[in-house]
């Protein structure tokens, strides 16, 4: 994978850009609030007829229990590497102009985005399908952990689709 780190990491902010199969890729892991507009900006392209986005937002209940807050922890360099790998694979599966993926770390208030994915393509099917596939892959193989805090306790969550190996999903 021809990764060419751009943007020098600043503070606690870590990002990576590269280009695969004529697709520009941007990934970010950050302790700051995620916003949709800047990520959509990363995938804007004059040749794109479609921009699809997915936002994963923290919710206030799990199995009827009230969730007070959530905290994310990442193995940052590996998370960035795996996110870039997923975006690169998406660029090989679909015809994308640009794809961007961002994930939060640290405390995330209820109702805030913890993950955003954006993809642009000439035609809508590519961007839509790529976003759907990319979030499933992120949940399966990007080394990030979520702890939910309830009244009187907390628990590290486990994704049902957690598939921590190098094996490709068919």
């Amino acid at each position: 994978m021809d990764e060419s780190p751009a943007g020098t990491p600043q503070g606690n902010l870590h990002e990576l850009t590269h280009r695969i199969n004529y697709t520009d890729i941007y990934v970010l892991v950050t302790p700051s609030d995620l916003k949709l507009d800047p990520l959509v900006g990363k995938v804007s392209d004059d040749g794109a007829g479609a921009v699809a986005t997915f936002s994963g937002v923290t919710r206030d209940t799990f199995n009827g229990k009230g969730v007070l807050r959530l905290e994310y922890e990442a193995y940052e360099p590996m998370a960035l590497k795996k996110m870039a790998e997923i975006c690169g694979e998406a660029a090989q599966k679909w015809s994308l102009k640009k794809v961007a993926m961002a994930h939060r770390t640290g405390l995330v208030g209820i109702g805030h985005p913890s993950v955003i994915i954006a993809a642009s393509s000439a035609h809508r099917a590519d961007a839509l399908e790529a976003c759907h596939w990319a979030i499933d892959e992120l949940k399966a193989r990007v080394p990030i952990w979520k702890k939910e805090f309830y009244e009187g306790g907390d628990v590290w969550k486990e994704n049902a689709e957690s598939r921590q190996s190098t094996t490709q999903q068919q």
Binding site: V115, W145, W156, E158, N159
Partner: peptide, 9 residues
């Protein structure tokens, strides 16, 4: 790195 079950997203 010791990687417990992941839960990103």
């Amino acid at each position: 790195a010791i990687i417990p079950p992941i839960s990103g997203g």
